[in-house]
Computed example of a mutant assay.
Amino acid sequence: MTTVLLVEQILNGLQFGIMLFLMAAGLTLVFGVMGLINLAHGSLYMIGAFAAAAVAAATGSFVLALAGAMAAAAMVGALVEYTVIRRLYARDHLDQVLATFALILIFSEGTRWIFGSFPLFLDIPSALAGPITLPGGIEYPRYRLVLIVIGLAIAAGLALFISRTRVGIQIRAGENDREMIAALGVDISRLYTLVFALGAALAGLAGALVGAIQSVQIGMGEPILILAFVVIVIGGIGSIRGALVGSLLVGLTDTLGGIFLPEAFKLFMEPAAATTVGSSLASMAIYILMAGVLIWRPTGLFGARA
């Protein structure tokens, strides 16, 4: 195992974690503020990717594609919150799960009807194509490095928005005592729509950014949704800082586990058996991590204790 490979895999884990953060940040806001289990969050990720591919094909601009992805996901999210989600706040979690699972099916078939069943492809902009040479002579894809920078910038901006702005203070207050801020004159319905649209926009942006390094296809949001739920459980429901830390932990654990565990087992097992056992254990590593965190701190790393 060379130093170059180690650094490359750490960067891959960071990039994967940052993309998970964009998904998990919106999900943890919705879950923490509204108490809503939204299984359709992955569909908003898919909508963002398809919108970006469509805008890029029409305009040739990657920046417009990202803007289109965020706008499309935010508008769909606001519409869904207004027409469906707000009727579920007073219902139990089973009703929320069933309703949002139905939304997954509706969005998947609706997207298939509009775009067809074949995958779409979103090209990396020419300015970000190719590798960049890092200190130590390490070559790493320029686009993936830019994803890390963009994600960290968004995390910083979101933290400032939540902690320093009037709307952010209302969001945090709504998480703790929604009846009180309603009594103080805050329009709860509008606040919930804003939170849901913000979460949807972040998911759409993540879908667009990932769409340039993977194919854009029906159902692409469901696998990452599962990981996003793991992230918010590890980080703590409602915590942006927890979502960031949890995302990085999951990204690094998943990436490094897939590389190092098979190699570690080869030290005392046959190569074929070591690869099988190591790969199987690597696929379980993030769930083992989640279990360990919950045993140590049941509310997650940064979750508020009751």
Rank of each mutant, 00 (worst) to 15 (best):
3 T>E: 15
8 E>A: 13
11 L>H: 10
12 N>D: 13
14 L>A: 15
14 L>V: 14
15 Q>V: 10
17 G>D: 03
18 I>K: 01
18 I>E: 00
19 M>H: 00
28 T>E: 02
31 F>G: 00
31 F>K: 03
32 G>K: 08
32 G>L: 11
34 M>Y: 02
36 L>G: 04
38 N>A: 04
43 S>P: 02
48 G>H: 02
49 A>G: 11
49 A>C: 09
50 F>G: 07
52 A>M: 04
55 V>Y: 04
59 T>E: 02
59 T>D: 02
59 T>N: 02
61 S>C: 08
63 V>R: 01
64 L>H: 04
69 A>S: 12
75 M>S: 15
75 M>D: 03
81 E>T: 10
82 Y>R: 15
82 Y>D: 08
83 T>N: 06
86 R>Y: 10
88 L>I: 08
89 Y>D: 10
91 R>I: 02
99 A>I: 08
107 F>G: 07
110 G>M: 10
112 R>L: 11
117 S>P: 10
118 F>V: 01
121 F>C: 00
123 D>M: 11
126 S>M: 10
127 A>N: 03
130 G>V: 05
142 R>T: 10
143 Y>S: 00
146 V>P: 05
147 L>M: 12
147 L>N: 09
148 I>A: 12
151 G>I: 09
155 A>Y: 13
156 A>K: 08
157 G>R: 01
157 G>W: 06
159 A>S: 13
161 F>K: 08
164 R>Q: 11
166 R>V: 15
169 I>S: 11
172 R>A: 05
173 A>G: 12
174 G>P: 05
177 D>V: 05
183 A>V: 07
185 G>Y: 08
188 I>A: 12
188 I>N: 05
192 Y>H: 14
193 T>Q: 13
198 L>A: 14
198 L>P: 06
199 G>S: 03
201 A>H: 04
206 A>N: 02
209 L>C: 03
209 L>K: 02
214 Q>T: 15
214 Q>E: 13
222 E>L: 13
225 L>G: 09
225 L>M: 13
229 F>S: 08
229 F>K: 06
231 V>S: 03
233 V>Y: 05
237 I>M: 12
239 S>D: 12
240 I>C: 08
242 G>L: 07
243 A>H: 09
245 V>C: 09
245 V>H: 04
245 V>L: 15
249 L>T: 03
253 T>V: 15
257 G>Q: 06
267 L>C: 06
269 M>L: 12
273 A>F: 00
274 A>Q: 06
274 A>I: 07
274 A>N: 06
279 S>D: 01
280 S>M: 14
281 L>R: 11
287 Y>W: 14
291 A>T: 11
295 I>A: 15
297 R>V: 11
299 T>P: 00
299 T>Y: 12
299 T>W: 08
302 F>S: 10
303 G>Q: 01
303 G>N: 02
303 G>A: 00
306 A>H: 12
